[in-house]
Simulated assay, not measured.
Amino acid sequence: MSQPIARPTVEAPAGAVPPAEGLPGLAVFDFDGTLVRGDSLLPFLARVAGGETLRRHLARSAAGAASRRLPGRAALVKGGHPADADDDFRTAFKRRLLRRCLAGVPLARAQAAAADMAAWVRWNTPLRDTLLRHADQGHRVLVATGALTLYMPTLLADLPVHDLLGTEMAVGDDGLLTGEMVAGNCVRAEKARRLALWMRETGPYGRRWGYGNQPSDLPFLALMDEATVVPTAH
């Protein structure tokens, strides 16, 4: 049963906590604003589309997301992209931005931009150290993030991360990105839903630790035995 979410802190567990009944422990980390300072999506899209193009797409995507519920728009939105009708503003904005920036982009070009993202990373050192300590104690380490799986494996390559849940982008048979999210936006309640399913499929686990920021990560932190709310790292 989940315990109350801890007060904001970045302190790691003081010592090893034996997994319940011999089962392995699990440590789940958010990425943007938790393991790293800032948000990774816009730096990645700038590397793919270019800074000036990204700025234009940002403005148009925000306008489109804001107008999706206006009278006369519902049928058009639902007819063109059914998922849009149920999006909250942030997901509607992200969906439009990804379409504008990534549709028609060769996968190889996106992978080159992902490799260049290594220069962007600014680790939140206390949380990175916490992750390393969990791995040293033999816990399974999962990163659950709304960031794109296009570039996340590159950014996590030097860390002992066993599994990744993220936002996946569709690739056509021609090797071009479609600009569409494969299974939606891996954030908030959707992240918690995917995590719960992943734990059922890969578990059972002993003690479960979670690290994320508020309010967006509170749904998945509620699934943990010990939840640490991290002040968002900028």
Rank of each mutant, 00 (worst) to 15 (best):
S2F: 00
P4S: 03
I5R: 12
R7E: 15
P8V: 07
V10Q: 15
A16W: 15
G22T: 10
G22K: 12
P24D: 01
P24E: 03
G25I: 10
G25K: 12
F31G: 02
D32Q: 10
L41D: 00
G50Q: 08
E52Q: 08
E52Y: 01
T53A: 12
R55C: 00
R56Q: 05
S61C: 00
S61M: 04
A62Y: 05
S67D: 12
L70D: 03
R73K: 08
R73F: 02
R73E: 08
A74R: 15
A75C: 15
V77E: 15
V77G: 12
P82M: 14
D84A: 14
D84I: 08
D86L: 08
D86N: 02
D88H: 11
D88N: 14
T91W: 04
R95I: 03
L97S: 09
R99W: 07
C101A: 13
V105Q: 10
V105A: 04
P106G: 10
A110V: 00
Q111N: 13
A112F: 03
A112P: 02
A113N: 09
A114T: 07
D116S: 11
D116I: 06
M117L: 12
A118K: 14
A118N: 11
A119Q: 13
W123G: 04
N124C: 04
N124R: 06
P126C: 07
P126R: 11
L127G: 02
R128D: 13
T130C: 13
H134R: 03
H134P: 00
A135I: 01
D136Y: 08
Q137D: 14
H139A: 10
T149Q: 03
T149G: 06
T149S: 08
L155K: 01
L156G: 01
P160W: 15
D163H: 15
E168S: 06
M169P: 01
G179Q: 02
M181N: 02
E190F: 05
K191D: 04
A192F: 03
A192H: 02
R193T: 08
R194W: 04
L195D: 03
L197E: 15
E201K: 07
R207N: 13
R208G: 00
W209Y: 15
W209A: 13
W209Q: 10
S216I: 06
D217F: 01
P219N: 04
L221Q: 00
M224Y: 03
D225T: 01
D225K: 02
A227N: 06
A227K: 09
T228F: 12
V229M: 05
V229P: 02
P231F: 04
H234F: 09
